[in-house]
């Protein structure tokens, strides 16, 4: 008898993550493209004011990477939902895996993705700064967050990572629900936006009060990572009994 291979869960998780990094090449590429588009829009400038008098005219245009960040949030939401789809799930089973290993490696992969995407977004500030500096004939006054001190950058990076993890876990959970039943495509939006019939800005207010208004970075991270973890664990639990290649 060919001796049976004994493999450790940890090693297979590692092998699956390495594999997924290759298999996700298209998704990585789409992140770069989306950020470049957002950088282009950002370099045109967002918001501004102008005033003039007999002797002078003053126009202020502000530049920020807000657009890059919003695009990235949207990207990670969609990407996270996408990797729960049949194509990506079935592929794992073409190699060695179990449902748990498959999902834990997805989780770690999404964590890495969120960290990399945050880093890219923070760095995009410098790209926007450079583009504006080179191509726009204006006087430039950098703000705190753009080319700020390391402390400021770390703060921005942490906050972005928190939001991206939240968006990623929400996308992942939504993706899992759709895999369980296609009806969730309709149910989830109804549950999300149903309450807005009564209070128009319900979700916005909740999100704003609970996450955005949090003044302590530490508590903010506890809240976002905690929510993300809860959503992710629910997703894993739901998927752990799901069959593959059932047709």
């Amino acid at each position: 008898m060919m001796s049976l291979a004994t493999v450790s869960t940890g090693d297979i998780i590692r092998q699956q993550i390495i594999y997924k990094c290759y298999a996700m090449a298209d998704l990585w590429r789409s992140l770069v493209v989306i950020q470049l588009i957002a950088i282009f829009f950002s370099a045109i400038g967002s918001g501004g004011m102008s005033t003039y008098d007999d002797m002078f005219s003053l126009s202020i245009t502000s530049f920020s990477n807000d657009a890059v960040f919003m695009f990235t949030v949207f990207w990670i939401l969609v990407t996270s939902a996408l990797i729960t789809s049949k194509g990506y799930r079935y592929e794992d089973f073409s190699y060695v895996t179990t449902r748990l290993i498959s999902q834990v490696s997805n989780g770690i992969l999404l964590l890495i993705t969120a960290l990399v995407a945050s880093l890219f977004t923070v760095m995009s500030n410098y790209v926007i700064y450079m583009v504006v500096y080179l191509f726009r004939d204006i006087e430039f006054y950098p703000g705190l967050a753009s080319v700020g001190a390391p402390g400021e950058l770390l703060l921005t990076f942490s906050a972005m990572t928190g939001y991206l993890l939240l968006a990623s876990a929400a996308g992942y959970f939504f993706g899992v629900l759709i895999q369980i039943s296609k009806y969730f495509i309709a149910i989830v939006p109804i549950m999300m936006f149903g309450p807005t019939m009564v209070r128009p800005l319900f979700i916005y207010e909740f999100g704003y009060d609970f996450y955005a208004q949090e003044s302590s970075v530490f508590l903010f991270l506890v809240k976002t990572i905690g929510t993300a973890l809860a959503l992710y664990v629910c997703g894993v639990a739901l998927m752990n009994r799901k069959e593959v290649r059932e047709i």
Binding site: L4, A5, T6, V7, T9, I12, Y22, A23, M24, A25, D26, G87, Y90, E91, F93, S94, V96, T97, T98, I101, R245
Partner: peptide, 20 residues
Amino acid sequence: LKVSANSMYLDEYTMFSNAL
């Protein structure tokens, strides 16, 4: 995991990423 590591199922619908 023991079964997955020591067995292989192959049919015409076996799936691999087209990025590879």
